[in-house]
């Protein structure tokens, strides 16, 4: 019994939809009946493939080149989505970068690039879409990370930006209630381009796998399903929540130590 077309007649906007988590989220939303506009930065060919896969599902898709760290480009992305697809019901702020490694020698510019994309960029997508969400059943989903919940000095600005997303989710949920629900998904280690370096190294891949109680890396579809759940009527009384989808990995001090 699959009550499909959960999002029939609805329109979603997704930042960073050409690859990785974003591409899986775009496809999952379209699979549930939504028309989808998504932004991408550089990967025009990958973006075209995502558009084609959405159209194969019988839905409309719009790919817009847009840098999430640039507020004017984000505004333009949202306006194009509304003009072409007519309305906006679901906003998924997915675009993000891991940014520079480490914590000892971070420059102000390094901080700025990560925060501008992961935190301010997510806010700007919300801000641009907000006037179009003034109807009930609208929903916003931010992409956080377990890296924003546990110590993660390996990527300090990333960790701080994602902790900021979790805080922003709570505040905007309160501010937008009762009509618009605002939630976040916090993924653990997912097999995407962002984590390609760790995944490509057999020792690193295996060490991370062993720290995940479920015993496997996450797949983009694991995250896309959580986004669909939060954006759907199934989560009609859920707002301000950060849903952790990590195979249990954030409890890793116990999982990895004994």
């Amino acid at each position: 019994m699959s009550d499909s077309a959960r999002f029939a007649g609805k329109v979603a906007v997704v930042s960073g939809g050409s690859r990785g988590l974003g591409a899986a989220i775009v496809r999952a939303l379209a699979g549930e009946g939504a028309d989808v506009a998504f932004s991408y930065r550089k990967e025009a060919k990958a973006a075209r493939e995502v558009v084609t896969s959405v159209e194969h599902l019988g839905r409309r898709a719009l790919a817009v080149p847009s840098n999430t760290a640039d507020a004017a480009e984000t505004e333009s992305f949202v306006q194009q989505a509304r003009a072409k697809l007519g309305r906006i019901d679901i906003v998924v702020a997915n675009a993000g970068i891991s940014g520079p490694e480490g914590w000892e020698a971070l420059t102000p510019d390094a901080w700025k690039s990560v925060l501008d994309t992961n935190l301010v960029g997510a806010y700007e997508l919300f801000r641009a879409a907000r006037p179009l969400l003034a109807h009930s059943e609208a929903s916003v989903v931010f992409l956080a990370s377990t890296g924003g919940m546990i110590a993660f000095p390996e990527y300090l600005p990333y960790s701080v930006s994602k902790a900021g997303v979790i805080a922003m989710t709570r505040s905007l949920a309160l501010a937008m209630a009762p009509k618009v629900r605002v939630n976040a998904v916090a993924p653990g280690w997912i097999r995407t381009d962002m984590n390609a370096v760790e995944y490509a190294s057999e020792p690193a891949r295996e060490e991370i796998r062993q720290r995940i109680p479920r015993g496997r890396w996450g797949e983009p579809d694991d995250i896309a399903a959580a986004v669909v759940f939060l954006a759907s009527d199934l989560a009609r009384f859920v707002t301000g929540e950060t849903l952790v989808v990590d195979g249990g990995g954030r409890h890793r001090w116990t999982a990895g130590s004994f």
């Binding site: 496997r216 399903a225 959580a226 199934l234 009384f237 929540e241 990590d246 249990g248």
Partner: peptide
């Protein structure tokens, strides 16, 4: 919400607590 948690789509969700409270604890 329980349906989601038992589904195949939540295969990588474990040790999670999902508040279903309309945001009362925000």
């Amino acid at each position: 919400v329980v349906r989601y948690l038992l589904s195949l789509e939540a295969d990588w969700v474990t040790g999670a607590v999902i508040g279903v409270d309309g945001g009362i604890a925000l």
